[in-house]
């Protein structure tokens, strides 16, 4: 299968893959039928690297994060593929085994994290509890000491440990959530739109925080957002998702410097920036296709400038632009 060979294509570098997702398909049972939210995606992540998953709402990026955490809702189902984390397949793991992994090795910073804190418990207590759940033998004072260290790490003033969440500003809550994600020294953090509700200046501070922590602690990061400018700021590698598929994958410089998929180009052309000459924004025409009955050919071809007749009929193949840059498009070389 094409996706599989492409997914393991850049194995020859020195660092080891922490995570290898191979041909993963995930969907939800709905009244209208089975919705293929994620359809055959493959990527890998090395230790200490960050991968940005970017795409419009409904493209499947959050489903990828939830599947990695083993937190799919009851109507969700993995229909195929493997998730190799440190060489073990997470898809085969029982809920009990996943519980041991979750937060200890893979942690997540959720969308709308501001509401993820318990309003009637002091922040220090919540974070200490997270630590103690995974290390029940630890004395409580030791756990609180660790919380102190975590506060320092995310630049929260130590004297605010005893506060309740409502006494925090939005940015402080987000820092507390990051502290909680770091509580058990995970190897992989999945951050799903962690700064969406924040103001620009606070957003900038939180992103800098995440980058610094990732560098210092050597954590691997999957950063999920619809905002390409944010993803570009924090990620080494970029995966562009569209309608449940990964359509372009490569280093940040390659994907944004030399975008090949027409969807990636369209995303960039629709995004206002402050840099360079002011240019007209080009909206992407049309709407995303149904994922219950997705088109058989290229899923973007209805909205694509360059689509040829064959595009709507045949499933496109992965094309390798460089050892670290690949595109799911039949016509990306023609212009």
């Amino acid at each position: 299968m094409n996706a599989r060979t492409a997914g393991t294509g850049n194995r020859n570098s020195e660092a080891e893959d922490l995570l290898e997702v191979e041909d993963l398909s995930v969907g939800y049972r709905t009244k209208r039928g089975f919705m293929r939210a994620v359809d055959g995606i493959s990527f890998s992540l090395k230790k200490g690297r960050s991968l940005g998953l970017v795409g419009e709402s409904g493209c499947g990026k959050t489903t990828v994060g939830m599947t990695l955490m083993g937190l799919l809702p009851p109507n969700g189902e993995v229909r195929g593929g493997r998730i190799l984390f440190k060489g073990e397949d997470l898809v085969q793991k029982t809920e009990e085994e996943m519980q041991r992994l979750r937060w200890n090795e893979i942690a997540m910073i959720f969308q709308a994290a501001m509401n993820a804190l318990n309003p009637v418990q002091r922040v220090e207590k919540q974070i200490a509890e997270a630590i103690l759940t995974h290390a029940p033998d630890l004395p409580e004072e030791e756990a609180l000491r660790r919380v102190e260290g975590l506060f320092q790490m995310v630049n929260l003033p130590g004297e605010r440990m005893h506060d309740y969440p409502h006494q925090y500003s939005g940015g402080m809550k987000q820092r507390a959530i990051i502290a909680m994600a770091l509580a058990c020294n995970p190897d992989l953090i999945i951050a799903d739109e962690p700064t969406t509700a924040l103001d620009v200046i606070v957003q900038h501070q939180i992103l800098e925080e995440i980058k610094a922590l990732q560098d210092d602690l050597g954590i691997s990061l999957i950063f999920i957002s619809h905002d390409i400018s944010i993803v570009a700021d924090v990620s080494h590698d970029i995966g562009v998702m569209y309608a449940g598929q990964l359509v372009e994958y490569g280093s940040r410089e390659e994907v944004f410097g030399d975008p090949r998929h027409y969807y990636t180009r369209a995303l960039l052309a629709s995004y206002p920036t402050l840099a360079g000459e002011k240019r007209d924004l080009v909206p992407i025409p049309g709407e995303t296709p149904s994922l219950v009955a997705p088109p058989s050919g290229c899923r973007f071809c209805d909205r694509c400038d360059a689509a040829a007749e064959a595009c709507s009929l045949e499933r496109p193949d992965w094309l390798e632009i460089s050892p670290t840059h690949r595109v799911l498009c039949a016509r990306c070389l023609s212009s």
Binding site: V200, Q203, L207, D227, A232, D233, F256, L274
Partner: peptide, 16 residues
């Protein structure tokens, strides 16, 4: 100026 500093720079922060 602080607002402009805080905007994402498409990974080009070092050059600006």
């Amino acid at each position: 100026r602080a607002l402009i500093d805080a905007l994402p720079k498409f990974g080009l922060a070092e050059q600006i």
